[in-house]
Structure formats: C-alpha cells, structure tokens
Design a protein around this nucleic acid. Sequence first.
RNA 1: GGACGCGUAGCUCAGCGGGAGAGCAUUCGCUUCACACGCGAAGGGUCGUAGGUUCAAUCCCUACCGCGUCCACCA
Length: 886
Amino acid sequence: MLDKTFDPQSVEPRLYAKWEASGVFAPKDDPGAEPYAIVIPPPNVTGSLHIGHALNNTLQDVLVRFERMRGKAVLWVPGTDHAGIATQMLVERQLAESGNMGRRDLGRDAFVEKVWEWKAKFGGNIVRQLRRLGASCDWSRERFTLDEGLSVAVRKVFVTLHKQGLIYRDKRLVNWQPELQTAVSDLEVANVEVNGSMWRFLYPIEGEPGRFIVVATTRPETMLGDTAVAVHPGDERYQDLVGKQVRLPLVGRLIPIVADDYADPEKGTGAVKITPAHDFNDFRVGQRHGLEAINILTPDAKLNENAPEAYRGLDRFVARKKIVADLEALGLLDGVDPNKMMVPYDEKSKLVIIEPYLTDQWYVDAKTLAQPAIKAVEDGRTVFEPKSWERTYFEWMRNIEPWCVSRQVWWGHRIPAWFGPDGAIFVEETEEAALASAQAHYGHAEALIQDEDVLDTWFSSGLWAFSTLGWPEQTKDLARFYPTSDLVTSFDIIFFWVARMMMFGLHFLDEVPFHRVVFNALIRDEHGQKMSKTKGNVVDPLELIDEYGADALRFTVVAMSGQVRDIRLSRQRIEGYRNFGTKLWNAARFCQMNGCVRVEGFDPASVRHVQNRWIRGEALKAARAVTAALEAAQMEEAAGALYRFIWNVFCDWRLELAKPVLAAGGEAAAETQAMTAWTLDLILRLLHPIMPFMTEELWEKTAEAGPPRDSMLITAPWPELPDSYADEVAAAEMALVIATISEGRSVRSELNVPVAAKPPLLVTAAGPRERRVLEENAEAIRQMLRVSELRFDAADAGAVPFLAEGASLALPVAEFIDLAAEKARLAKEVAALAGDIDRTAKKLANPDFVARAPEEVVEENRERLAEAEAAKERLAAALKRLEGFS
RNA sequence: GGACGCGUAGCUCAGCGGGAGAGCAUUCGCUUCACACGCGAAGGGUCGUAGGUUCAAUCCCUACCGCGUCCACCA
C-alpha cells in the first residue's frame, strides 16, 4: 500500500542513482535512431545553482526526456565555464579572506595553480546540484571550458582566424576596468543613469587676450588630455575662431580649434573639448584631424606623468575636484549645471566606473563573421522561439563592432601569440611552432615571450557547441550530433553567447550550431524584484527542492515558463504544484486499493463501457496536446494540459464515476479496473519529462502487480495512441452527464461547450434520508437530470439512475437533494438563462448581424437561443416541482 | 534618443474578434472509506485611458498614461 504522500527526500537520490548507473543518460547506440542533442549553457564553475539555472535546466531536461522516450539517440552535454574574471575575483577574495598572499605577490603560475585547486575542491558543486534537479545529462561527456580538449579548440580557432585576418591586434580605445586593470568588451559595460554635473570652462584664445571659448564637460579631469576644441563647420558663432588656437588652462599647451560635424551647435555651448585618448567620440575626431592622443591615466585610473605635476598620482575623481577648484580660482569656471547622464559601469559589480583607455588589444572582426550568422537566421536554418528575439539578434548583428577578446587577467586561455625581441608577433598553436616560425622569420633562433593576456571567457564558450563534441578532431559525436538540435537559454546572453556560437559554428563547421533556440524568461521574486544577494530575496532552488521536492519545483518553473514577461516565483505556487503531485500520488493509491492493476494484453480499443470509452478518448486528447506542446517547445502548455487532465478529468470525474462501477463488481468493474490502470500508466509516461521522480517511483510501485515492466519509465516508449481511441458517442454522453451533475448545469455546459470540469457533487452511498427523498421525488429528478429512467439498485444503498441509451452508465446521484440549496441554485440558473436569452435575442434581432455575420455564427446563436429557452423552461419546470417537496 | 514587452478578479498569471478564466488568497460548509497537500459552495472584474476599424472588440489599429527590459557616443 502506498503512503498518503510521496517522500521526495528518500526517493529522489535513489532513483537518480539508479538512472545514472544504468547508463540511460548516454545516447543509445542504435545507429538507426534519430539523433537529438542539446549542449548545456555551461554555468560558472564557481557558481551554485540559482533559480534561473533551475528553470533553464528543467526545460532542457523536459525536452531531453521527451525525446529520449520517443526513441531518439539523445545527448545532453553537460559542463561548466571557467568564467575568467568572475572566478579570478572569487579566488582572489578567498585568498585575501584567509590571509594568504595576494595575486600579484603570488605570481602568475602559483595563482593559477590556486585557482585550479579551488576548482578541484568546489567545482563539482554545481553539477551535483544539477543532479538534484534531476537533470539527465550524459555525465560521461562532461566538459570544462578550460580543459585540454577545449584548449586545443581555442588555439586552433584563434590561430586560424588570425591567419585569415579575422583576428588582429590594434591600438585603440577600449573599455578599461581600472580596478581589475583589464579591458572588457562593450557588452560588459552597463550604462547607468546618474545625477552628475556639467561644468563650463573658459579656454583663452591665443593671441586675443580677454577672448575665450566656452567648452562644457562632465569629466573635467580629462581636460588635461585635450588636444583640440571642435566647433561645427556651419556654426556662425565660431566661424572666425576655426584655425586659431587656445591655450589649455592648467597645462599651458596650445591646441587648435577645429571644425568638425561632431560638434553639435544645439548642445552645450556648441564648442566641445576633444580628448582623443579618453573619449570614444573624441578619438574619432582626433583621427580625422590628426590630433595627438595624450593618455593622462595610469592603468588604475590615476593621473600619470602626462598630467601637470600638481595632479600626478591623484585618483581621477580627486583630480576632478581639484581641477574644478583650480579653474575656478583662475576665473575660468563659467558655471556648473546639474546634469542627468549615463555613466559606464562595470556590468558585473556595477561599482567600478569604466574608463575609455588607449591600449593594444586583440580584436575579432565580428562584422565579417556576423554575415553568415545573420543569413542563417534569415533563412530559418536556425529559428528562435519565441521568434520576436530574432529582431533583437538582427539589430545587434547588423551593427556589430569589433570584439575585443583579450583580457589582462590570469585565469583563462592564454593567447597563443609570441613576441620577438623586435616586437614581431608569431601566432601559432604551440610554442614550438611559434619558435619555428620565428626562426624562419629571423633566419636564426630567437627567444620569444608569450603574450601575457588571456581570452575573453565568451571566446571559449562560443565554441561550446562543437568543442564539446571533440572538434577539431573529427569524432563520431561530432559527425552524429552536430548541428545540435535545440539550445535552451536565457535571452540576456543572446549577444554574449548565442550570437558568438552562431558566428563560430558557421565559420568553422559551415553549419549552424543548433536548429532552434528556445529562450526562457528571467525569474524574479514574487514582487517582481530582481533577485540579488544584497536584497536578500534570493530563492535557493536547493532549499525549495528540500522542502517541496524536485518535481514540484520543476513543474512550477515549467508551468510558468511560457511567460513573455519575467517570471515571479512564489512559494505558494510551488506548494500548489506539490499538492498536484500528491493528488496524482493518491489517485495511484486509489487504483492500488481498488484492484486497478495492469492486465497483460489489455487493449483499450476493446472496451465497451461508456466511461471507459470516454476516458480513452480523453487520454488520446491529452496525449496529443502534450506531445504537440513539447514538440513546439511550449513546455508550459504541456504542463497545463497535464494538470487539467490529471486533476480535473482523471481524478475529479473518471475516478469518481468509477467508484460505483467498481463497487458493483462484475464485468464492467473488471473492464474499468483494467482501463483505469492503463490510464494511470499513460499519465505516468506523459508526466515523466516534467515530474520524473514521482512518476518513476509510481512506475516501480505499479510494477509490483500485473505483468512485469520492460524498462524503467525513463526509457519507456512515449505514448502514441491511434485516432480510433476517440469515441464521439461516449464523449457526448459523458459531456451530458458531467454537465448535468456538475454545478455548471447551466446552459453553457449543456450547450456542449468544452466540459467545464468542475468537481462533481457526489456521494457514493446515500443515507436513508437521501434515499427516501430520491424515491419520493424520482420523477422530478429524472426530469432535472434529463434521463429517461431512474432506477434504484436495491443492492446499493445509493440511488443509481441510468442513462437510457445503452443503459450503460452507472451514475450516482444522492446528496444534491438538499432541496433549499437546490432551489436557490435553480432559481439563479433560470435568471442567468434569462440574461443569456435576452442578450442572444437582441443580437439576433439586429438586422446587420443577421445579414453580415458569418452564417455559422448566426446559426450558432440561433441554436444557443433555442437551447437556452428550452433549458430555461426545463429548469423552471423542475424548480416548480421542487417547490412542491419542501 | 531608438527598439521591444507588459498593464485582465486582492495576488500571480492564462485567454487574444462573436458566451469574462485558472491557481493562490478570502468567506461558508464538510475529518464522506485515494487525497484536509483534500472535497463542496460563495463573494470578487466598466479586461490601463480615449478614440478608430467592424454587424460585433478584452482581443485588431492609433494616441495617451503607467511599469519593465534591451540598445545607443551625446560634450
């Protein structure tokens, strides 16, 4: 006998171990099986599972389990990302906290060694947590973006792109993170609106004492690096000044006034100071006019030796204050206004202000790589789900900028470039090759120094779709599973990751990396707040799993996954779906208690009892709906269909209606038992992708009676039911029955719209009082129920009216004869009907409607009116009769 | 400044041209022999606002208001 509730704590680990040990997570060998592959979005190796991972990986697991049951050779490649900067920072912090030497004191090799140690110790955390979720990844193929095979792929890609001219070294402005002292890409910069100030300074015109030009700036300290002032060529105010020079205050340098379209006469004073080394726009202006770019900052954003001595060594913000004060003292401060502006912060911490900084870095020619990637989505070789994200993708890809891929950190793929003594660069996959190449270049052996920089983490994760399959080796996995089938990911990494994988995949394998990209929404807390550690509103999925079980969490995130907007997760919601699981569990318990055991060779096509023919049709509908939803990656639709079928159809109606039949015994009971067991089996299979643990457990438990199982549920075949399972006659009869019994005995239900699926008012055994009332009022009840005959079964304490047609349905009535309530309800029905009739009649009286609406709509309304009138009459009559009873 | 999305019951959300829905919460009644993580019932909505298209609009169009996200070089 099953317990009253399912115990996830004890069952989940056992079942997961059983699955994993059995090898079913690996793709099956059958060469005839259609391949289906997903590569996991690799979580940061430093991370622990957050709720977003739970959503993302559950969705993948649902697809994976579904396709596995459909008989495909399914591969879900797991792995983790080395997450260069994030991991390095984390380990640095750990070292500091435990009183160790800092990174720089430790030195590069020792530090990297520490990181590897850290990874060995804690890197398994997140993959263990994925197991708790139930993720059926093939752990034998687990990868790490910094493992040996992937390093080979990274070097090969870098070298190849370099030889093709698609990776190059360039000196230009980058986004500089002064705290870490590394370049970051455009994507790693977050512009945040802040209330700042705009200062206006007077720059004296050289040779015209007493004449000034007024420039405005939000970053006064940059004026030390000014090498020009620009005005618009058409700006009449400054016509005579173009070509003249100003004497840069505090510095004393003479700088030209140039005419450039960039200067907007509408903005500020119309004259703009140009600092080519510290502003992206100014850099371009500087290039156009051949201006010098004077770098005034050190790598940690202090003023350097190019600044006047008074400012050297000052932090940029300290210098800012001093410069403003000094200019004011000189009478050169024209004024200051409050100014709302966007300030570039470091995307991760949002604490450090990014500085435009002039350095040598490696760049990927993203513009060239983007072209095939754009085309592939235009052609539909890769489709986005939902499709609306394609626009975002196109927008970015069509305006893509060179991608800065070098980072001045230590944890990551070291760039395979070596410098000769004269600065010549040798880009090769190995040091040996670089040395050979240098020898050829110089005519003799030369010592080389490898580039200190590492690659952007996204460079290696951009190769993930094929590097994990063994590329550049031509492995069996690569041949079989590339291009992969689906990618399931969050839209916030569409540029970081999806776009880069598209570019690399198409460039190196000439095929898209995946056929479909399924985007999932972001999860917030129940008040719509972003989850963050500082707010303390982070929901730990592991805690939720402990409390409610993995299945409940999985069902919840799946059921909410369809949202376009962000998902607001609440515990109540999870609790509700935990209850849903319990409901199913107890349905199985009911089956067990009532001898609903699987029967060898049972064929649902052969059932005769109307309830059984009906549930067979309902099962068909449910199976269809779930299958279609999962094929379309509409996981939430599948969850909804299952919820309704299991609770509202199977539990509320099928099992309730089966009770009297089962109690009566005989042939009908035997058939009903077998059919119920069959339906439960079907439910377990359909639900398994979303709630794998409970269903597998029930699969095991129900194997104890009846014929032996062929396999675990995880590899049981997905149900494919024949059309012939539908039975319109049974469906119509049951719709009538359900409509009649249920509260929805209104016109709506009777008009045979989809069954309202409200729980029935049923008691299997009526007490003596009900029995008497039923017998006394048989005729009224018969009319109310619209059954042609009402018979009472002496063997049963309850009343059992039969439908005339086939007389096959045992329908327990009983206790709804609470006359007062019944009368009130009927009166209300009648009133509601009157409203319906009125509305419909009005509509039909409208000549425009009759003339112009589609024929079937008019017809439908006519029928509705007729039936409503008939129903009203019927109910009114029943009401009248009931009035005689009290 | 551009783009996208969202405003439907107290809350979280489905629905998206012809009858306003679910779960939770609330109120009432049930320890009925699968399930109190349950069963039955009740209350609760001018479907953001204003126009337009249509015989018909929560659903389509326009504008506006509110909220959110992404992108952008504005001194």
